[in-house]
Structures are given as C-alpha cells and as structure tokens.
Amino acid sequence: MGSTMINDIRISYEDFQKFREYFYHKTGIWFDESKRYFVDKRLVERIAATGMCNFRSYFTMLRFQASGDELQNLINSMTVNETYFFREEYQLKCLVKSVLPEITEKKFDNLPIRIWSIPSSSGEEPYSIAIYLLEYWEGINHWDVEIISSDIDTNMLHCARKGFYSHRSVQYLPAQILHKYFRNTDGGYQISEELRNVIEFTRVNLFDPTETKSYRNFDIVFCRNLLIYFDDMSRRQAAENLYDAMKPGGFIFLGHSESMSRISPLFKVRKFAEAVVYQKPYYKSEV
C-alpha cells in the first residue's frame, strides 16, 4: 500500500476508544487522550502494513485472527522497547530502602540473597542493580548477593557479557558512577571487569516450565516490561514459573505499566513508599 493510501486512513475518536479498550484488555496498557497521536499513527501504519483499507476491517481481523500474530505486531509497535541504566530508578530505590531491609530482617540463614533479572537484554538492568547495591545499600557489606540474569536471546546475552554501552544508554547515570564503573571506549563505554564478573548470564525461555525448573529460591525478581509482550496464556504460564522460582516472601518488580493482579491471583500487592511490588505469600506455617 502506498503512502497516498496511508494518508487516506482515518482513525475516528470512536475508533480510538474502541481500540484502547481492546488493547487495555489484552495488555493492561491504557492510552489516555494525550497518547491519541501516538496511537493513531501506529494504528494507521499497521492498517497499511496488513493491506486493510480502514480501521473497522483491521480491527475485525485483529480480534479474530487465530494466530494472534497481528496483535503481537501491534504490541511491538505500541511499546517502546528501550532500556538504559537506572531505568525506573524509583524501583531500585525501593529495592534498597524497603525490600532488602525486609528480606534481611527475616533471613536467618547464611545463604546468599538471590536476585534474578529477566530479561537481561543487553545487561543494563542487572548491572544497574549491582551498582545500586554497591552505592546505596549498606547491607552489601554484611550479606552475600548472587545476581543471575537471563534472556532468551543469545545475542543479547553476548552483548551483556561484553558490557559495551552507548552514550544514550548511560545518560541517566550520575557522573561519578559513570567514572567509577565504566571505562571510555571508541564511541561509548564498557562496564568494569569486576562487575562483568559478578553477574551470571544464562539463556532461558521464561514461558517454558521445563527450562525454568532449575531457577529456584530467588528472594527478588526483576521482570520488567516483558509480560506485556505476550498473550494471556503465556503471561499466565510465565507468572506460574516466576512464582515457582521465588522463595515464599520473595518480591517481584514489574514494569510501571504492568500489573500482576491482572495476570495471576498468586501474588500479594505490596505498596511501599517508593513503588508497588508483588510478593509471593509465605506458606501458612511460616506466617
């Protein structure tokens, strides 16, 4: 379909409303009026890309397509797949100010505190967690911490292990942290060898219960902006797998637009001063 026809496609306000209700139902993501331009633009692109001539025919196809491929394409285009150091920093603050103190208060063994960061993507999240603990959590002097970070994409894991980053990726890091943990390279930065050596990067498909079986006893899980990409069944299965990977009383951080309550009743909502986090309940005998 040529650009002239793209220009002919119109999204009415009723179309926008109909679409956002549907999209919210499918992904938990709600577009308010201020996102109208963003949503319309991407909808028009997808209508043209699928060879449909208007919103109505596209929406019908979207709802009834058995494979769900187009919904996935739409989700990909409606979400900004971007990551960087200290992304959603309020959650990292919550980790060191509220979650870790609660975990250590109830921890009576000498085993390491286990943290799982999934998806690792190119490593910004697990390295951010490590830096945050070193810089802002006094407990790192008293407790062992084991960070495992996983992704289904082996290219991403390779990048994460190498630890090279662009200016854009480190733009929100305070200067002293950048100087302390990174070295300048041609056109960017590489994270210190010390940090590269403390994180274990592994390949796993979160939606495959067989693959996640060996992931156990995590005190804390970061699983941000991943579940929104998948259909209801995959989300349900992923929530089950995450639940089984966690210790009773363990915490899970999701992306800011994600809600575990809409995916699974297995977790409790915990509202801390800094962020909302989900918790795997203790077994009755442990309460």
């Binding site: 286990r114 403390v198 992931y215 006893n217």
Partner: peptide, 17 residues
C-alpha cells in the same frame, strides 16, 4: 561479603526436588 557467583554443585539450596 558482596557479590558471589556459585557453581551449580554449590547451590544445595536450589537443588532439584
């Protein structure tokens, strides 16, 4: 104390059922 990286056999706490 600090970060640790354990081998599989060292993880008695996460052993199979």
């Amino acid at each position: 104390m600090g970060f640790v990286k354990r081998q599989k056999e060292e993880r008695a706490d996460v052993n199979e059922r």
